[in-house]
Every structure is written in C-alpha cells, then in structure tokens.
Design a protein around this nucleic acid. Sequence first.
DNA 1: CACCGGAGATTCATCGTTGTCAAAGAGTGA
DNA 2: TCACTCTTTGACAACGATGAATCTCCGGTG
Lengths: 346, 346
Amino acid sequence: MSTMNDVAQRAGVSLKTVSRVVNGEPNVSEQTRRKVDAAIAELDFRPNSVARNLRTGRIDLIGLALPYLSQPYFSSLAEEIMREAERHGLTVLIELTEGDAEAELALVREHGPHLGGLLMYPVGLSDAQALTVARTVPTVFISERAYDAHVDRVAMANREGVRALVGHMVSLGYTRIAALGADHTGRPERAAAHLRLDGYRDGLRDAGLPYLPELVLEVGTPHWNRQEGSAGMRRLIEGGIPFDAVVAFADALALGALHAVQEAGLRVPAEVAVAGFDDTDDARYAHPSLTSVAPGRAQIAREALALLNDRMNGTVDQEPGRLVVADFQLTVRESTLGGMAAWGGA
Amino acid sequence: MSTMNDVAQRAGVSLKTVSRVVNGEPNVSEQTRRKVDAAIAELDFRPNSVARNLRTGRIDLIGLALPYLSQPYFSSLAEEIMREAERHGLTVLIELTEGDAEAELALVREHGPHLGGLLMYPVGLSDAQALTVARTVPTVFISERAYDAHVDRVAMANREGVRALVGHMVSLGYTRIAALGADHTGRPERAAAHLRLDGYRDGLRDAGLPYLPELVLEVGTPHWNRQEGSAGMRRLIEGGIPFDAVVAFADALALGALHAVQEAGLRVPAEVAVAGFDDTDDARYAHPSLTSVAPGRAQIAREALALLNDRMNGTVDQEPGRLVVADFQLTVRESTLGGMAAWGGA
DNA sequence: CACCGGAGATTCATCGTTGTCAAAGAGTGA
DNA sequence: TCACTCTTTGACAACGATGAATCTCCGGTG
C-alpha cells in the first residue's frame, strides 16, 4: 500500500500537491499534474479513505437498515439502493434489525455516529424514536408508516396501487373481488395493510361496487408469507362465499392464494383472477405468472438517495421532513388475463 | 460527538488513560477506571472507529462479495454471515459483482486494500485472478469450484448431498430418477453442476441402478431458475420417457419441475417424487413442501469466518490454502413422502 | 538512608490525509 | 526597475485514536 507521500517523492513534488491532483483541485500546472498522475499510476496508489474520512469528517459510507435480507422485497430493494448509491459515490453498509425496535435503536447508537447517513426501513420504531434516530445521523426512512412531520420519508403508492389493481379487475368483468392481507388491529407498524385496504375500498367505490366484509381476509403473522395467503384463501373457499377475484396485499400472499385456489380445482384466471403487490421475481416466475403492482423500487432508491444526499450536505438542515411517494406500475400478467402470454413472460 | 479528549478532561485524567480504559488494558487503578467509565457514560462517548483503524491499521470491516442479493440462496447466506460476523466483532460490507469477473476484480482493487478481510463467492474469477485477490487482502472463497491450492475455500457437500438424496429416493422405492440441472459444457464456473451430477451417479451406483442419459436434463441459463426447471421437465414429459422421481440440482429448478409435473396431471409424490438442493424458504413454503438438501449455511458462515479470522490475524500466513466442506442435511418433506405432514410443515 | 523495582499515569510521535497560510515565481503596468 | 497582482507550490498543524518511551510515586531492601 503506497501512500501519498510515496507518490510525492516519486513525482518530486510535495505531498500537498499530490493531494491537489487527487482531488482535482485547481491551481496545479498541467505539467505537474501529469508528473503526479504518472507516479500515481506507477505505484497503483489509491487514497486511503479511512484517513481521508478522519480528516474531512465526511464519510462516504451510508447505512441501510432492513429487517431482513431473506425476503425478496428487501433483497431486491437493497440491490437497487446499492446500485444507486454507487452513482453517488457512496458505499452501503447493510444492517439487519430483524424488525426489532431495540435492534433498530442499538444499531443507530452503535454505528450511527460513524456513518455519513442512514437509510432505514423501520418496523418497531415509535415516532419519538424515529426522531432520535434522525437527530443522531442524517436519515431517510423508507416506510409506509407515517412518521412525525420532522423526518424525511419515501413511501410506495400503497393506496393508489391497490385502487388501480381493483380497477383493473373490474375492467375485466370481475365483480366479487376478495381482499387478502387486511389488518384490523390498527397497529401503526401495519400501515401498509391499512393503506392498501383503503385503496381496495377506493377501487370498489370507483366501480360502484359494495364493500363486503366477508370478502376481506385478515392474515395473522406480522410478515406476509405464502402460508398465510394460502390459509386465508382456504378459509374463504371453505366458507362457501362466492368470489371471482383476489387482490392480495403482497406477492407472497398472492402466491399462497394461487395455490389454494388451484388446489380447490378453480382455474386461474378463467374462474378466479389473482393479483399481488410488490412485483417480486417470484411473481414473474409463478404459474400462471402473477399480475402485480410494481412499487417503483428503482424510483424509491433514487429518491431516497436524493433526499439523503441533501441531508448529508446540510442543504435542508432545518426544513421539516419531506415525503416522496413513488410512482407505481400495474404489471399485468397471466393471472388476470389468461392465455395471452407464455408462462414466464414478463 | 465527543472525543477521548473530552472524556479525559471531564475525568481529569490524560487522554491515554482513557484509551487504556476503553481498550481494557491493565495498569489502571480501579478508582481511575471508575472515574473514566463515569465520564464516558455521561458524555455517551463512543470511540471513533475511523481514527482507531487509521492508527492501528486493523480494520474490523470485512467485505462480502456476492453475485446477487435477490436470489434466495445468496440473501440467506448473507444473513448468516452477518450474524456470524457480529459474533467476531466484525462488520460486513456487502458488494455485488453480478457474476462478472471484471467487477469482481475491480471491487478488490478498489476496496480491497481498505478492508480487513474478504469473503467472496466468485463466479468469473480464474485461478490466477483468485490468487491475485487473495494476495491483495486476506480472503476466503465460498465456492464450489476448486481453485488453486493456495487459497482458502469453504464448499458445500455437493456430491455427497445429491448422493444421499438419490439414496433417499431409492429407499422409498423410486427407480427411474431423473437429474435436472446437469451441465455438459465442462466450464469451471459450473462446478456445482458437475459435482452434483457426480453425486447423482454415485447414488445410482450405490443402489445398483443404471445411469440413463435420457433421464439427465441439462438446463440453459447460467443461473438456475424456475423457468428452466419447468422447461427441462416438460421436455422430459413430452419426450414420453418414463420416470418416477426428479432430483433437481437447485430448489428453483425443483420448484419449476414441480409445476411442470403437476401441470401434466401427475401427482406429487404419489406418482412422481421431487427434491431440490439449497433448502431455501421457497422449498418449505411450496406445495407440496419440497424435500431438499440443506447445505449447512450456518456452518458455512461459521467456517468461513473462522478461516478468515486466522488469515486476518496472520496465524496461518504462509500455509497452503485450506478447504472446508460443510456438512449437509437431508430435509425430507412432502414432495418425497406424501401425506405425512401438513402443508408448510417442517 | 540511598537505591531499586514496578505499578500507574503521562508525554510525544504517528497513522494518511486535507485545510490554512505563507512563500516563491511569473507576469503586469507605471 | 519597483510595487503589485495572480498563480503555483510547499510547510505545518490537525482529524481522533494508539504505541513507545518516560516520568512519578511508593514501598521494600541491604
């Protein structure tokens, strides 16, 4: 590992001049610059970011706090964010919270002060705690839950997305549309479920269809998975309640529902249409491929980093928190259209 | 952000004494230690790891280079590794290579010198390049491909795992067992496929069954996914070749196969048994739940970090590379047993 | 009583950079 | 030629911590 000093000696200039060249500062003659560049190349010198960070106080390392990595939505979000961060010249440090408020706070206490910024998908954090986090380190939350007005947040178009999904179903002639994944506990960490249910109601209202509580299925676990989806759907089927479409609030639920429906001998989409939310890879590869709301992951990543960048540069230091809602896309596949695309098509 | 200096002033001792206390060094009186601890608590002081790293040259940050995060095997591996690293007091920096040798090298050139160590799941790296990487930074490869004898590597029991899987099938009475996921290109980056095929042959030989080339299905893409699994299985079915079991070399392939088999009207496992490799969550939640070889992810994480730790401490500096093969477990579920467990069990 | 050993604490230099400030050279106008 | 810019360059301190060397007591010895 060569240092700036080595480069300086080799180029026959002072250390500071090398620093100037490396950082593209002005007031270096073309000739010197070339000499230094040559020496840098010869020694394969790379500035020591540790030392640089120490000196400047700026850190090009940002944290990304997620509950899990093993769930498709989070791993693909992480991928997008890492790609976007690279464009900003930032390195991403992923931290797992397992959805525990304690861990979320501990992480911030521990690493927060030594991170340039933090992107966090909070789960257990209360309003007050979120504020604490944001005061420790420049933070942008990626969350469906509305926090106190003083923190920045990027969210999905939960409500509009499901509304559009219902509209899509209606336009295809389905009228008894079940909702899968509702939550009636009202707990704030289930905000996504609440908003999506609102969207479901909106969609029905748009179409002049009645809201039928018996078509609204609550599921149990805190995180939506296939088992829950399948179990919920079976309850509906066994209850003998007629339905011709299912809007699931997550792809995992939809995939579970798909199974239960097919297991019951119903054809998808001929007899029952199924759609999900998240547009994960699993949805694309399902059989039949699953219609889903793509929440604009790339845009979420982009916006989150844009907001964070502002915070890190102090551009918006005292502003109240900003909220960005990403655009969504309705990705229509076989599970609501039938026979139009080969299995596996996008 | 308070510094050691602040703590020193507050406690009325020298900066170095604070350093001693923080690092648990001897030769500090109990009384002083208490004073310092109190000051640390009052100021909520946390040592600046950037400065510490600069001074000591030791870095508690290790890289984890993976091709993707969005594939279940990798994201769950990453989770395990992060958990294990925490136990060693290390922080993990995940880097994505997209399976490109160029990116793998670039990453090492760029970040390598400033990382304490590196865990890498190489894809495109040649033998010579792997050695280059290992010389840049203490490295442990997690890879099925055998590299040059001078690098450390942790691998799965590819061959033994599939062999056991075939044995399991045989013990249940299946005799025409198809292999899904073979590779005949011989390209070294497909080592996993080669080893698993070897295991398949071993299993047949153990049982005294003939190796039938028409039951061995090659798949196309570099990474195994459901579409490929399903396409391969359909070729087999349409070819009219009789079979009563499928050993897929990856869960994704097995899930695709499951669909194709069921689509063809065959019951699993009554008429056809299906099993995979990797033991991902998807396998557990599939319908029927999928028998799979669990490659010992936790052990892989543990061993990889143990090896890396040695390298980082220079304990084994000049030794030739070491190879650890993790134990595997055969996780038997409905897709080979039938009717014994409720869906989603195990 | 002078001397020694050792625990407990301190001072000073240092890791590899960047910010500040001053010095040296080059060019300009009077 | 001199005073005065403006550009280019360098010396030095500093970021926050640790390692080496040193200093200060204090009790124990001969």
